[in-house]
Simulated assay, not measured.
Amino acid sequence: MIKTGPLNLITDVDGIKIGNAEDAKVVTGVTAIIPDTAAIGAVDVRGGGPGTRETEALNPDCLVERVDGVVLSGGSVYGLEAASGTVAELARQGKGFNHKGIIVPIVPSAILFDMLNGGDKSWGEIPPYRQLGIEATRNLVKEFQLGNVGAGYGATEARYKGGLGSASLVTDNGVQVGAIAAANPVGSVLIPGTKSFWAWAFEQNGEFGDIGPPAFVEDMPLDLPAGSSLAENTTICVVATNVALTKSEARRVAVMAHDGIARAIRPVHTPFDGDSIFTLSTEKQELEEPRSIGLARIGAMAADCVARAIARGVYNAESLAGVPGFKSELFKD
């Protein structure tokens, strides 16, 4: 039996907490995903316009095994400073790799482009992201809101307001898998000409409206916004599991989890997106034997959670800065 966790959030995974911070004037935000103790980390980047920090360190042939957090941020390249804020705050708390008494938190991150959403970006020499990273890391919780929250605060999708989404799955034998996604894609989460999500088949308990599949789709256009250009969009995600994985196994979960983006958005992994997925393993439970079968199950669960998290992020986002929220348009026509 596989079912959603009690909160249906990534924090259903033992050892994971989330912090969010927003700037309403700038129309942007930051999400910090922080394990209680350093977790095995990995990443897989598929988009053609990524913006990331510390991802090379997560390669299986590199020294770093565990990370102290992952940061997702708006702000394009400016948002990479959010991870600096998280590093500073974690060091203040004494969390990180201790090298001869020097605390060095390892915090990979990825950013999305929310620079043209109507917010005031005239911040001068000091962008707000480092402070937002500090605030997000100081306010860690197990239960949090979806939609216009954290890294999803200024996000958009092809037609509607984007947002922050999350979902989880747990099994009877204690395996926990969760995902959090900041959905800001150039593609659409909806089947053309309908109000049905591409991810409808993976929905659990009406979590994004119980709209179901469309009765009929006459045409399947693939229209991209006329002004699309490199790195102006992105869906960035973190998946987590309580199962102990090696660094290579964690990367395979990230690879499989990208199928969740493909199930939720069309088109995906375009030259205009920076789609990236991180994996965290909190190592609370051993991987079942044979390991390849257990790993495949976790990867499949992760892909389903990512698809649902993306749909939930858009479904729960409210209208902002002239961009309509999905629910505000749902019953029109």
Rank of each mutant, 00 (worst) to 15 (best):
C62S: 12
C62F: 13
L63T: 08
V64Q: 04
E65A: 11
E65M: 13
R66D: 03
G69H: 06
G69P: 05
V70Y: 02
L72Y: 01
G74L: 09
V77C: 03
V77S: 14
L80T: 12
L80D: 07
L80F: 09
E81F: 12
E81M: 11
E81T: 14
A83D: 03
A83S: 15
S84Y: 09
G85D: 06
V87D: 01
V87G: 01
E89C: 01
R92T: 12
Q93L: 13
Q93T: 00
G94Y: 10
G94E: 11
K95E: 10
G96L: 03
F97Q: 01
N98F: 00
N98R: 05
N98I: 04
H99I: 09
G101L: 10
V104I: 13
V104S: 00
P105E: 05
P105K: 07
P105Q: 05
I106L: 12
V107T: 08
S109H: 01
A110P: 01
A110V: 01
A110R: 01
I111G: 03
I111C: 12
I111S: 13
L112T: 14
F113H: 13
F113Q: 13
D114Q: 11
D114R: 08
M115Q: 14
M115F: 12
L116A: 14
L116N: 14
N117I: 11
G118D: 08
G118T: 09
K121I: 15
G124N: 09
G124M: 09
G124Q: 10
E125H: 08
I126N: 15
P127N: 14
Y129P: 12
Y129V: 11
Q131E: 15
Q131C: 00
L132P: 07
L132E: 12
I134V: 15
I134M: 14
R138C: 08
R138A: 10
L140N: 06
V141N: 00
V141E: 04
V141S: 04
K142R: 05
F144L: 04
F144H: 08
L146H: 05
L146T: 08
A151Y: 02
G152M: 04
G152S: 04
Y153G: 04
G154Y: 00
A155Q: 00
A155M: 02
